[in-house]
Amino acid sequence: MTNQWTRSIWVVPFPIKCLAAILTSTSISLIVGIMEYVPLAERAEHTYYYPFWYTLIISVLISSAILLFLILPLSLFADHVLASRRMNRIVTKVIFAILTYLLLGVGSGVLFSIFVFKLDAFEYTGHYQYIVIMTFVFLLWQLGLSGLLSRGRDENRSDSIIDK
Rank of each mutant, 00 (worst) to 15 (best):
residue 119 L to R: 07
residue 62 I to R: 10
residue 117 F to R: 00
residue 24 T to Y: 06
residue 23 L to Q: 02
residue 136 F to G: 01
residue 153 R to W: 15
residue 131 I to L: 09
residue 56 L to D: 03
residue 78 A to P: 01
residue 129 Q to E: 07
residue 141 W to N: 02
residue 109 G to C: 04
residue 22 I to E: 04
residue 34 I to P: 01
residue 100 T to R: 05
residue 20 A to F: 12
residue 19 L to K: 00
residue 28 I to R: 01
residue 101 Y to N: 08
residue 32 V to K: 04
residue 67 L to E: 13
residue 37 Y to A: 06
residue 69 F to G: 05
residue 130 Y to Q: 04
residue 58 I to R: 14
residue 100 T to V: 02
residue 133 I to L: 11
residue 85 R to N: 09
residue 49 Y to L: 02
residue 42 E to Y: 04
residue 68 L to R: 01
residue 145 L to F: 08
residue 24 T to N: 04
residue 111 L to S: 10
residue 43 R to I: 02
residue 73 P to Y: 03
residue 31 I to P: 00
residue 86 R to Q: 14
residue 3 N to H: 13
residue 91 V to H: 10
residue 140 L to E: 04
residue 86 R to S: 14
residue 159 D to I: 11
residue 1 M to D: 02
residue 81 V to Y: 15
residue 55 T to F: 02
residue 37 Y to D: 10
residue 133 I to W: 08
residue 21 A to F: 05
residue 44 A to N: 08
residue 144 G to K: 01
residue 110 V to A: 11
residue 68 L to I: 13
residue 25 S to M: 12
residue 73 P to I: 07
residue 66 I to R: 03
residue 95 I to Y: 05
residue 111 L to N: 07
residue 35 M to I: 12
residue 90 I to P: 11
residue 41 A to L: 05
residue 1 M to Q: 08
residue 157 R to L: 14
residue 55 T to Q: 06
residue 119 L to P: 00
residue 163 D to H: 11
residue 118 K to G: 00
residue 87 M to W: 08
residue 122 F to K: 03
residue 69 F to I: 02
residue 54 Y to W: 08
residue 41 A to F: 12
residue 153 R to M: 12
residue 62 I to G: 06
